[in-house]
């Protein structure tokens, strides 16, 4: 396999020290995407096609009044529109907030003001490493039910809090993406801009960031896929997203064990169908931009 060291066999070949390669899969920022994208597309199609058969197999041939599959079919529209689309909404909002905050945090990481840099470094390091579920619980319990702004009372429902709770770790990771992309631009670009009289701020916004936008896109999409796959965490906080609704649907159908595979399997397929194309596209973009520049 890939880890085996090839031994030079040609006569006269000089022994060389091969570069150090850690064993096992690469645990870089793309691990989740790489894992997901490594699944052959055919498997997913096959899984979706075999899904009813698996359900039937689990149910057995016993003639029930209503088979689990029929029960699922009845619930499908509800689970998709009320459940999965809610997950998508949570992920899109969390990503939007996380990106906006992360962009500024990332620029703060490379700021020339030492204090700002230190504060950003603490923020990014802490929230990149804190478990997401712990963070979600903290946000849920620490934030009030409603906030009063200028005498107006704005309710803060649980799902908004989960959006905030998910946006925080995403912003910390996006900050690292921004910092890495900015620092990957050769310093010569900064010097050229400086010699033409550009200020530091002009250089960042007009010369550096436009160049690294392409480089930031693949890791950004990578984090979006990870975030989307993490939205079921919200079900533990009582938010009515797809996993919560699936559980409730199964309870409504009498909590029968043969419902487990069809109902959770359906949720799994939805996530797979949504995240798989993103993962494939991410890796393709990553490969394309890795070669250029």
């Amino acid at each position: 396999m890939a880890y085996k060291t090839p031994v030079p066999t040609a006569k006269g070949a000089l022994p060389v020290l091969l570069p150090f390669a850690p064993r096992g899969p690469a645990y870089d920022a793309f691990f989740a995407t790489r894992w997901l994208a490594a699944i052959p597309a055919g498997w997913i199609v096959a899984l979706a096609a075999l899904f009813p058969a698996m359900v039937l197999a689990q149910a057995g041939a016993a003639a029930a009044i209503e088979t689990p599959l029929e029960k699922l079919l009845r619930w499908m529209p509800f689970l998709f529109t009320q459940g999965f689309l809610f997950n998508v909404l949570i992920s899109v909002l969390a990503m939007a907030i996380g990106t906006a905050v992360g962009a500024f945090a990332g620029l703060a990481l490379i700021s020339r003001a030492r204090l700002l840099r230190a504060v950003a470094r603490v923020y990014v390091t802490f929230f990149r490493n804190v478990p997401w579920l712990v963070l979600l619980f903290i946000v849920l319990l620490a934030f009030p039910f409603q906030i009063k702004v200028f005498g107006m009372t704005i309710p803060l429902p649980g799902w908004i809090k989960t959006v905030i709770g998910l946006a925080i770790p995403v912003s910390a990771n996006i900050a690292e993406v921004v910092r890495g992309a900015v620092q990957s631009v050769p310093t010569a670009q900064w010097e050229a801009a400086e010699s033409l009289g550009f200020t530091r701020r002009q250089t960042i916004w007009q010369i550096i960031l436009p160049q690294c936008f392409k480089r930031m896109l693949p890791p950004w999409m990578n984090w979006y896929a990870i975030l989307t796959m993490s939205t079921p965490l919200c079900s533990l906080l009582g938010v009515g997203e797809i996993i919560s609704l699936t559980r409730q649907a199964m309870e409504a159908e009498g909590n029968r064990p043969e419902l487990l595979i069809p109902f959770y399997g359906f949720a799994l397929l939805l996530f797979l169908a949504y995240c798989y194309p993103i993962a494939r596209l991410t890796l393709r973009l990553e490969r394309r931009f890795a070669v250029k520049n």
């Binding site: 010699s195 550009f198 007009q206 010369i207």
Partner: peptide, 23 residues
């Protein structure tokens, strides 16, 4: 500079125009 250091995301004309316009 030795390595030209043109801005790769701008055309030749935009490279020449950028500093007088923006700076």
């Amino acid at each position: 500079f030795q390595q030209y250091n043109l801005f790769p995301h701008k055309t030749a004309l935009q490279n020449v125009m950028m500093a007088p316009v923006k700076v």
